[in-house]
Lab assay of single mutants.
Amino acid sequence: DYYEVLGLQRYASPEDIKKAYHKVALKWHPDKNPENKEEAERKFKEVAEAYEVLSNDEKRDIYD
């Protein structure tokens, strides 16, 4: 669930989505996790995908 990936509720505002994305993206950035790079890359891609969908009103409506 994209909301879960970003740690958000379904009623999150666009500002909340952006803030959550930056927080979680920093947490899972591969450069910040050199000891667990493969998992970090996978999680970072999930976070980016979730943000791409939830930050676009049209894609978010379809997802919801």
Rank of each mutant, 00 (worst) to 15 (best):
F44I: 07
A40S: 10
D61A: 14
Y3E: 05
Q9S: 12
K27L: 13
A12M: 00
D61C: 09
E49V: 09
D61H: 12
A12V: 00
V47Q: 04
E4T: 15
Y3M: 00
D31E: 12
Q9A: 14
D31L: 06
A40V: 07
K37R: 15
V47K: 00
A12T: 04
A48Y: 10
D1L: 04
A20W: 00
V5K: 09
K59G: 08
A40H: 07
L26K: 15
E46D: 08
K19F: 10
P14Q: 15
E4G: 12
N56R: 08
D64P: 04
L8A: 09
E38M: 09
L6N: 04
E52G: 12
D1P: 04
E52D: 14
E39V: 10
N36R: 10
E35W: 03
N36C: 10
D61P: 13
V5C: 14
L26N: 03
P34F: 12
D57M: 11
R42Q: 10
A50P: 00
A40C: 13
K27P: 01
F44V: 07
N36D: 12
H22D: 13
W28P: 04
L6H: 02
N36I: 08
E38P: 09
K37F: 10
E58M: 10
N33L: 04
E4Y: 06
E4M: 04
E35F: 06
P34C: 05
L8W: 00
N33H: 15
D16W: 06
V53Q: 11
A40Q: 04
V53A: 06
L26F: 05
E4S: 13
P14N: 11
V5T: 13
K23Y: 09
Y21F: 11
R60W: 01
K43H: 11
K19E: 15
E58P: 06
P14T: 14
W28M: 12
E58G: 12
V24A: 10
D57A: 12
A48S: 15
R60I: 02
L8R: 01
K23D: 14
I62Q: 15
Y3A: 02
K27R: 11
Q9F: 03
Y11C: 14
D61N: 14
E39M: 14
K59D: 08
Q9K: 14
E15D: 15
V24C: 10
G7Q: 12
A20G: 07
K43S: 05
E41R: 13
Y11M: 12
L6P: 01
L26T: 11
E4L: 02
R60A: 02
A48M: 14
P34T: 14
W28H: 13
D16H: 05
